[in-house]
Simulated scan of single mutants.
Amino acid sequence: MSVEQSINLIWLSLGSVALVEFAAHAAPGAIVLDLQHGLWERGTLEAAIAVAGSSVPVIARCAENSPQAIAQPLDAGAASVLVPLVETADDARRAVAAGRYPPLGKRSAGGVRPLLAGVGAMLEADRHVAVGVLIETVRGVENAAAIAAVPGVDYLFVGTGDLALSRGTGDPGVIARDGAHVLQAARQAGLPCGLFTQDAAGARAALADGYRMAVSANDIDVVKQGFWAACRALG
């Protein structure tokens, strides 16, 4: 997955393959499947990636920073993994190792989709996988420069929700300063940086500030707001 240009993300948590198809039809830069907090299971993950097809890259927000949690979405055909709660350079090194085949990492070879075209194609696909890390705690913000310097990290991403919990405040100014700190660390390392945003207006502002990835819509809010609007329209 290329992260050389600005990418509009649609974030999906509800575990619906049908919603993935609708999201892909809207032609975003990429789709994020939230395996950490979402309702995705292995079978629906495989189906969702198949439905998205080659036209829309799929990023998997992993359930955790572990070899199995990172390898499973890659085995399903995800273009990128976004590894949560990375707080140190050692955390980042573990994520990179789990996301790459030897000799670059420790990822185990296997799965159904990677081997469809043979081992050679599996190894070639590995060259295009992007490993992203979520900075979403105060400790992660403080160590952002060291995390960004880890070889094999392809991009940083600021998780604003968990960061607000870690900070003990959702004050927009405080979170914005933390984000700017991570963004600067990414720039100094020559890496793109993304930001979790709630809607298109937030995404537009983030991209204008220099972030290269931002969330224009997420399925929970789109569905919730659609139902609320319909009910209110009837009085």
Rank of each mutant, 00 (worst) to 15 (best):
M1K: 08
M1T: 11
S2H: 11
V3T: 11
E4L: 10
E4W: 00
S6M: 01
I7K: 12
L9Y: 05
L12Y: 02
A18P: 06
A23C: 00
G29N: 10
H37D: 12
E41I: 06
G43N: 10
T44H: 06
L45P: 06
A52V: 05
A52H: 02
G53D: 01
G53I: 01
V58T: 03
R61Q: 01
C62D: 00
N65C: 11
N65E: 04
Q68K: 07
Q68V: 08
A71E: 08
A76S: 03
A76Q: 03
G77C: 09
A78V: 07
A79K: 03
A79H: 06
S80H: 06
V81H: 00
L82F: 01
V83T: 02
P84E: 02
T88S: 13
A89I: 11
D90H: 04
R93W: 05
R94H: 08
V96T: 01
A97I: 10
R100H: 03
Y101F: 14
P103A: 04
K106I: 04
P114D: 10
L115Q: 12
L116W: 03
V119T: 14
V119W: 09
M122V: 10
L123H: 04
L123D: 03
R127A: 12
A130W: 09
A130Y: 02
I135F: 02
A144C: 08
A146Q: 14
I147V: 13
I147D: 13
G152N: 05
Y155M: 04
Y155P: 10
G161N: 15
L163I: 01
L165Y: 09
G168V: 04
G168D: 09
T169G: 05
T169V: 02
D171T: 00
V174S: 08
V174L: 08
V174P: 01
I175W: 04
R177H: 15
H181P: 03
Q184E: 15
R187C: 04
A189S: 13
L191R: 14
L191Y: 06
P192E: 11
C193K: 10
F196W: 15
T197A: 12
T197R: 11
Q198Y: 11
A201L: 14
A203P: 14
R204G: 11
A205W: 01
A205E: 15
A208T: 10
D209S: 13
Y211G: 13
R212N: 05
M213R: 13
N218T: 04
D221W: 03
V223I: 13
W228H: 07
C231N: 05
R232V: 08
R232E: 11
